[in-house]
Structure formats: structure tokens, C-alpha cells
Design a protein around this nucleic acid. Structure first.
Length: 302
DNA sequence: CGGCTCCCCTGTAAGC
DNA sequence: TGCTTACAGGGGAGCC
């Protein structure tokens, strides 16, 4: 399940391998990978349009915000200063992988799209469940940065140098939804998915169903701080490879699974207090918590 | 408009 | 044993 640490690990792998490469060919093996998360049916001309948009372009260094990846490119013979900036956009969804292969390597059966790089290498997009996406988008300004237009509603993530923890905490506090759902709202704070939301809440000692509007701002700040630090720790381990659906660009796994304290550990003892870890459902997502370390919010009398 | 539910999809595993 | 069903989840559409 690629979240920020996994996507950043992939971005770093791509940075070494695709920056400066020229796209010499395009193959779309499953057109659904070009669709949106809720509209997988794409018109037949979408394949040709995608291929035409990236054919011959020169790839620049990959960028990321939250779980969204993009690779800015320069079209052949175009002046980068005057042409409208654009990028190859990538989202790994649930099971997406980006792999850089020699062109003669066998093609895995979940390969959905292939970009040939130069003469003998390929960037391959694999995605078992097709929740991911590959496309092309124009870049629009966001302060000093440029982001794909389709990503402009995505908030800065906790590893962004311009992330404002204090302002984010105030936005979170305005919500009356379950704290975990707010933490996973990518327009409030990006990059946090189901695993790291559970881990951050446990480390902060806060119940996933706590209502931000009824919390002290210091508790909200603590949860955001823990989100940042747990994702930094996971990044240092190359991310979490829970079920082999997430791997690096070279096929290696991440090693943070051994450091998870609650996610996927329901019924087992909490390493902090010895209590039994429970699983509930929050916002239709499996949610893991230690009821002793993360006591429920006191109900409000009305 | 905030907040919620549903749905896209496939592989795995439980149930009958 | 073999089929059917439930479940996992990121994020957007659509509804109240």
C-alpha cells in the first residue's frame, strides 16, 4: 500500500534512472490505467493521445507531493522557457509499481504501460488492481512550485519544507469528522494513508474516532508531529512492503513492516502496554488501535 | 459545503 | 474438492 514513504522511495529510485532520459516509444497494454479512479473506461483515442503526448520527450527530475508523483518533461525541439510546462503524472493507487528494466527483460503480467527509454531500457508501470493511474498534465504554479493541475487540490505533505504544521493543525481542528478520516483527507494533509494514520494515532495516544473540534490543539499538533516522524522513520527503512505489492524501482522490498505497532496486529499484544490490539472500521477503512494507549474521547453531554 | 457512502478492480481466503 | 462470496483499500463522484 504505497503511502508517502513508499512513493518517495520510488521517486528516489526513479531520479537516478530516468532523469535526462528520452522517451523513445510508448506501449499501453491496458488502457484502464489511463482512466481516473472512478472512471476506468477511457475513450479509444485516449491511448493514441497519451502516446503522442509523451513520444520523444526528455524527462527531468521526478517530483512528488503526498502520494502523487510526476515527471516534468521537455518536448523535442521545444524551448523549455517559453513552452507550457507539462509532466508525466503517476499515481500508484493500491498496488502500482514502477520498474526500470532492460528492454529484453520478460514483461510481468500486471504490466499496464511501458515507456521505452533510449535504446535499451524501459520504464514499466505495473498495477495488479488498477487503482493507479498514468497520464499527462500541464503544470500550474503553486507559490514557488509547479504542480500538475489535477493535483492542485492536494495539500503539502509533512515532509515538504514548506509544510506548515501549525496552520494544518488549525484546519484539522475545524472538522467534526473522525480524526483518522481528517488525517487521511489529502486536501488537508497529504501522504498519510491507512497504515501511517493508524501508526501515528497510536504513537500519539489518540483514538481514531476522536473529534478534532473537541480536542486541544496541542493534541492535534502531536498527531501531526507523529505522522511526520513515523513516515520519516519508514522512509529510512525504504517503506513498508506489507504484501509484496509495494516494491522499489529495482524490485527490492521495504523493511518498515517490522516496526509497525498496530497496523495488521489485531489480537496481538501492544508493545507499549501489553493490552490487546483491536480492529474497528473508520470511514470504511480497517483501523487498528490499542484501547489502553488510545482511550476513547469522553462523550460530550448535550 | 462538510461529511459520508459507494464504487472502481483483482487476488486471496474463508465459507458452504 | 470446487464453487461462491467477502474482503482489502486510494481517491473521486455523488448524495444529503
Amino acid at each position: 500500500m504505497p503511502e508517502l514513504p513508499e512513493v518517495e522511495s520510488v521517486r528516489r529510485g526513479l531520479q537516478d534512472r530516468v532523469t535526462g532520459a528520452r522517451v523513445s516509444g510508448v506501449r499501453v497494454l491496458d488502457p484502464r490505467i489511463l482512466g481516473s479512479t472512478s472512471q476506468r473506461r477511457v475513450p479509444p483515442e485516449a491511448v493514441g493521445a497519451f502516446a503522442a503526448a509523451v513520444a520523444g520527450v526528455g524527462l527531468r527530475a521526478p517530483e512528488r507531493r503526498g502520494k502523487f508523483l510526476w515527471v516534468p518533461f521537455v518536448r523535442p525541439g521545444e524551448d523549455p522557457q517559453s513552452a507550457p510546462p507539462a509532466a508525466l503524472t503517476l499515481h500508484l493507487g493500491m498496488s502500482g509499481q514502477l520498474r526500470v528494466h532492460a528492454a529484453h527483460d520478460p514483461v510481468h503480467r500486471h504490466t499496464r504501460a511501458v515507456l521505452a527509454l533510449g535504446q535499451d531500457r524501459e520504464l514499466r508501470f505495473l498495477d495488479q488492481r488498477i487503482f493507479g493511474h498514468i497520464g499527462v498534465d500541464v503544470l500550474v504554479p503553486d507559490g514557488p512550485d509547479a504542480v500538475p493541475r489535477s493535483t492542485s487540490h492536494i495539500a503539502r505533505d509533512p515532509l515538504d519544507a514548506r509544510w506548515n504544521a501549525e496552520a494544518t493543525a488549525r484546519v484539522v481542528q475545524r472538522s467534526r469528522a473522525a480524526l483518522k478520516s481528517v488525517l487521511m483527507n489529502q486536501s488537508v494533509v497529504s501522504g498519510v494513508g491507512n497504515i501511517y494514520a493508524d501508526e501515528a494515532l497510536h504513537r500519539a495516544g489518540v483514538h481514531p474516532l476522536a473529534v478534532p473540534a473537541r480536542m486541544r490543539i496541542s493534541r492535534i499538533r502531536r498527531v501531526l508531529d507523529e505522522s511526520r516522524s513515523v513516515m520519516l522513520a519508514a522512509l529510512a527503512q525504504g517503506g513498508t512492503s506489507f504484501d509484496a505489492l509495494y516494491v522499489h524501482v529495482n524490485g527490492d522490498s521495504g523493511y518498515f513492516e517490522r516496526s509497525l505497532r498496530v497496523y495488521g496486529r489485531d489480537g496481538r499484544p501492544c508493545a507499549t502496554c501489553g493490552g490487546v490490539i483491536r480492529r474497528i472500521v473508520v470511514g470504511a477503512r480497517g483501523t487498528h488501535l490499542c484501547p489502553r494507549c488510545q482511550p476513547a474521547q469522553r462523550p460530550r453531554r448535550s
